[in-house]
Computed example of a mutant assay.
Amino acid sequence: MNWKGVFPAVTTKFHEDGSLDMDLFFKNIDFQLESGVHGIILGGTLGESSVLSQEEKITLTKETVDYVAGKVPVILNIAEGATQDALFWAAKAKELGASGLMILPPMRYSADAREVVAYFKAVANSTDLPIMIYNNPVDYKTLVTIDMFAELADCTNIQAIKESTRDISNVTRMINRFGDRYQMLCGVDTLAMEELLMGAVGWVAGLVCAFPKETVTIFNLVNEGKIEEAREIYRWFLPLLELDIHPKLVQYIKLAEYHCGIGSEYVRAPRLTLVGEERERIEKIIKDGIAKRPNL
């Protein structure tokens, strides 16, 4: 598994009546692939996994794997409250042809360090799929510490970390402790260029759903050492990237997809589409960004 590159955490597309809109979903996937992304992540926060049925998740995974047809890896996110459910999805991902897994610590129950490590090990030992641990204590209230990663190091298929602690120096701490044992990917859009400069090899991105070309260009420029060129695009991008660090990131990013012509703003309850002053404010950020899009 090559974890280097831009991995969109794609949104799930719905019709107005709430049913899956696979045609629009694949329109967006086409645009991602044409823009040069390096993988696709299904079932994350942006994918509204918590409001999808088991059957819908299976459909989404199978059809995406078939549609992408090996052009890039397809990664399934696992965010479950029960270890047995996580094990089910690890096995199902393998069965459906997914290339790897992204895994959050146990949901809802606030597990301690011993329990979190046991949870990750149980999943890792049940499959040969490569795994990326999603470390996001800000939103999900569980910090996977460096000492916990030391305990997980003997699970060879735990290969990567989606670094979302919002502490840039954590990239350096991890590299100092483990060298290249774990591949570090930035999971916070507003810190992406900074973490890439500090040694992250990838970017699990949100606004890429609406602006894939710009996201991939920044990544490529940083890797080519063209820092000034990357910085110019990143400064333009930052007001849009800040939409990724809000509790309504799903609504905000889906509205951006809609204005870019590669998505719709339909979400599933309890989320609701934006109205009033909030909608006007977010639309202004999106429209200003589109109007000032850099010439790539």
Rank of each mutant, 00 (worst) to 15 (best):
K4Q: 15
V6T: 05
F7P: 03
H15W: 12
E16H: 15
L20S: 08
D21M: 06
M22H: 10
F31A: 15
L33E: 02
E34Q: 14
S35Q: 00
S35C: 10
G36S: 09
G39F: 01
I41E: 06
I41P: 01
I41L: 08
T45F: 05
T45P: 01
L46Q: 03
E48N: 09
E48Q: 15
V51Q: 11
L52R: 03
Q54T: 14
T61L: 09
D66W: 02
V72Y: 06
N77G: 13
G81W: 09
G81K: 10
T83V: 11
Q84M: 14
A90G: 09
A91C: 09
E95M: 01
G97F: 03
M102G: 06
I103M: 02
M107F: 12
R108E: 12
R114W: 13
R114V: 13
F120D: 00
A124E: 04
T127K: 02
T127F: 00
P130G: 06
I131P: 00
M132P: 07
M132Q: 08
Y134G: 05
N135V: 08
N135I: 08
D139V: 12
Y140V: 14
T142S: 12
L143I: 12
M148N: 09
M148D: 02
A150M: 10
A150D: 15
E151N: 09
E151K: 12
L152Y: 08
L152T: 07
T156C: 09
A160K: 03
K162V: 00
S164M: 08
R166A: 14
S169N: 13
T172C: 10
R173L: 14
M174Q: 08
M174Y: 07
M174E: 03
N176T: 14
G179A: 07
D180L: 02
C186D: 03
A192K: 00
E194C: 13
G202T: 07
G202W: 05
W203N: 07
V204W: 05
A205E: 03
V208Q: 04
C209I: 02
A210M: 01
T217K: 10
F219P: 11
E224G: 13
K226Y: 01
A230Y: 00
E232L: 10
I233F: 00
I233Y: 01
W236K: 02
F237A: 06
L240F: 01
D244W: 02
H246D: 14
H246F: 10
Y252E: 07
Y252K: 08
I253L: 10
L255F: 09
L255A: 09
E257I: 06
Y258W: 10
Y258M: 15
C260D: 06
I262C: 11
G263D: 04
G263N: 03
E265N: 14
E265G: 14
V267I: 14
P270L: 03
R271F: 15
L272E: 13
R279D: 06
R279N: 09
R281F: 13
I282L: 10
I282V: 15
I285D: 00
K287F: 12
D288W: 09
G289Q: 03
I290D: 01
K292P: 03
R293Q: 11
P294S: 11
L296P: 02
